[in-house]
Nucleic acid binder design. Structure first.
Lengths: 243, 243, 243, 243
DNA sequence: GTGGTCTAGACCACT
DNA sequence: GTGGTCTAGACCACT
């Protein structure tokens, strides 16, 4: 036997993982597509020669991953979905709260990403896109100072989402969601920055967008984001320390 | 009662989901941190007043999400992890194969992201980063034309990963992985492009990186990526149609 | 989803089985050969990333299969062997006692196989082979009627083994062993056939062998075997019935 | 004390071996039969006055030997099987790859055995047997030149198995499997012999079989086998040398 | 001895 | 009739 390490670590695959793989393979090969209904749990248990619980464990995994939707009732069953971005957002949140990702890196990446979104939005955004953003800003203004925390975060998430939609690239809006939704937790924790008129800043930004003025739009937005981010970072200097 | 919608849709939260939420809340609040061990399944089942299978279902969900690691044996149990980027990559793959995301949007986003990575890598990359990339290119060259499909894709993934590491921003490298790994399936399916000297292109790119020549580096890389992407897109015009 | 059954039964491979496979693969590829010593259990446990008991379970499996020999002590360890025919014989015994193989089929196959052995032995047997057989017969004669059951079966096994050796084909002698050793249990159970002079029959057979008279040798031997087999079959008409 | 050697070597029988022996004895005596369930690991550990792991080691040994099947779950446990030919095939493979058996002897024995199988198949084969063989040949033909390596070897194994079944003697088909399955590794290694129309040869052979023409059938088959065997032998002149 | 994996089968809610 | 929940008890793996 040579001096080199000849053996690879063994990793026993669990039954439910093997089932997930087989189902995903059918999807990749095109045998199963969005909208198709899988056989019942009981029938699949027979096909896979495992117990119903093992099939359920696989179904659950794929449901969490946004691949399947499990419906109850006599007309129910497991239906193939188009996928769901939820797991991406959830994982970003987990990475942040567990320390697998620093808030610094996260916010820096968010700014970089946002710059590219603005660039594309300036290029491809339609008046419909801008009108939707305008309505969002108007709603924020209408709510006034007494706005609830829930409403404020909802409008903020919507604002960033509408902006991402103007890029006409769904992959980019998916990633932007993953870089915005987890912030909600931090924004809630620190409360609103009352010294700053968010609606006014967004309105100015929208103006630049409509004029297709990339640099001005970026300047306005990045300024706002950096202000928010540094506020969050300063408040989270020692995350979990006070718990 | 106002004219606004006053009631929220009823959604019965399943037992295991409630458990996941409780555990995640403990993590976000800092009560539980990476490295901590949870009580045994049997004990938690009693605390939550559910069966052991329900606790397992929750553990499984968090394990898939990279939040927990389930270890066997007498010193085993459920340990809190730092999070795992796997679910992000997996979800991207699912979105692509299920049609929730078009290959066009995905590849466009990949190029946009790569441009920013190169910008940062030119600015922050150290000689260590470049040496690692050089070694990767050398390995590809050494393998020659007879390289196995597995080895080729491994080296490609590593190349993009090493490049992302030079940005010194983990959030960016996480996202880049999510935009590179799912491509493996497509690259495997279409086979290598033998009319193109990948190693040479990468070597030239590395030269530009070392000279901190952002524009030249971007030009070289984007050229290569667009070539690959259009090849993949042309071969996948009708995904699943031939299955 | 089509009407055809799309999924295959899942079979989870256990950790020790995966280890056995990896070791066997190294042997087939020639990286490991007879006489080589494997790393220590502790080292392999690290390489495979499993516990020592799992490595032991794999070692034990390969030891039973005749692939490894486990030596105790300071110079001990797991050494690769040349293989062992024991598992073949053992499995034949198991198949017979469990009903996976009928005694009728087994004895018929034994006669067919023996005929081919005689044919080859007539063709290739040397005087050394015949002298060894002669000595075996002489020993049986010398023991006389008071021969112990153990001694009698030992000499019978040896006789058939020496004959198989005269074929100069080890594959054939391996198979013949698998068709002779399991008979011991039955012969012991029914006791010797005192109306039949076994030594005389074998001596006559040896004479034909020396004269290279295939047909006469086969006739003499097959006659004897069929007599024995029908006696065994008659006594085992209802196997296990009297238990 | 006689001049003969009076003492036998001491060989400490390991605990798990003693347990295996006891269980096998119960099977041979008919106390335990195929389909019976053994007591649980915990209970047997108490009865044998050993640890649970020792019982597991014995169970494992008998499972590998095809004597027991270990089932999980509430209705699970160790169940007695009818035996399994797998260990015979596996041992043959091991003997070949470890050098305990030469490929020359092995292939010669295979031809000798095959001749006897053809003889019996001509005598006892039914139209059902021949039709099954015909279907196998048709499947090979239908697959054409683009047949996958897996499919090709599966059909070859099936062909020889169906032929062996026509002998109506299970002992013979068991041995033939042991002389065919290990060849798969070598056939895979060397790839298909494209200069030879295997399907045509098999079809001609089947014709002779149907006409009960032993000599013609043997001639056709042995010709094919010898061609294959010499090809394998020439390619494996220095096994493991190039590794 | 601990915890993970899997099983068969029960009852329930839903459609 | 389907998925959702739960249980007791077996083997599997680790220390």
């Amino acid at each position: 036997m040579s001096d080199k390490q000849a053996f690879k670590p063994v990793r026993t695959k669990r039954a439910f993982e093997e089932i997930c793989d087989q189902i995903r393979r059918e999807i990749q090969s095109g045998t199963l597509s969005a909208g198709d209904k899988l056989p019942s749990e009981r029938e699949l248990a027979e096909q896979f020669e495992v117990s119903r619980s093992t099939v359920r464990e696989a179904f659950r995994t794929l449901e969490i991953g946004g691949v399947l939707s499990l419906q109850k009732g006599v007309k129910g069953g497991a239906v193939v979905m188009q996928g769901d971005i939820k797991p991406i957002t959830q994982t970003m949140e987990d990475l942040l709260s567990l320390g697998g990702l620093s808030l610094e890196d996260y916010t820096e990446a968010r700014v970089i990403l946002q710059r590219e979104i603005i660039r594309l939005a300036c290029e491809r955004g339609t008046e419909e896109d801008f009108a939707a953003i305008e309505a969002n800003i108007a709603e924020l203004r209408a709510a006034g100072a007494g706005i609830s925390s829930d409403e404020r975060t909802r409008l903020t998430q919507e604002f960033y989402h509408l902006l991402a939609l103007a890029t006409k690239n769904r992959a980019i809006s998916v990633v932007m969601s993953a870089f915005t939704e987890p912030l909600v937790y931090y924004i809630r924790k620190i409360g609103p920055d009352r010294s700053w008129d968010v609606a006014a800043s967004r309105a100015k930004f929208l103006g630049h967008l409509r004029e297709r003025d990339v640099d001005a739009a970026i300047a306005e937005m990045v300024d706002h984001m950096q202000r928010l981010h540094s506020y969050i970072l300063s408040q989270n200097a020692a995350p979990g320390a006070e718990a």
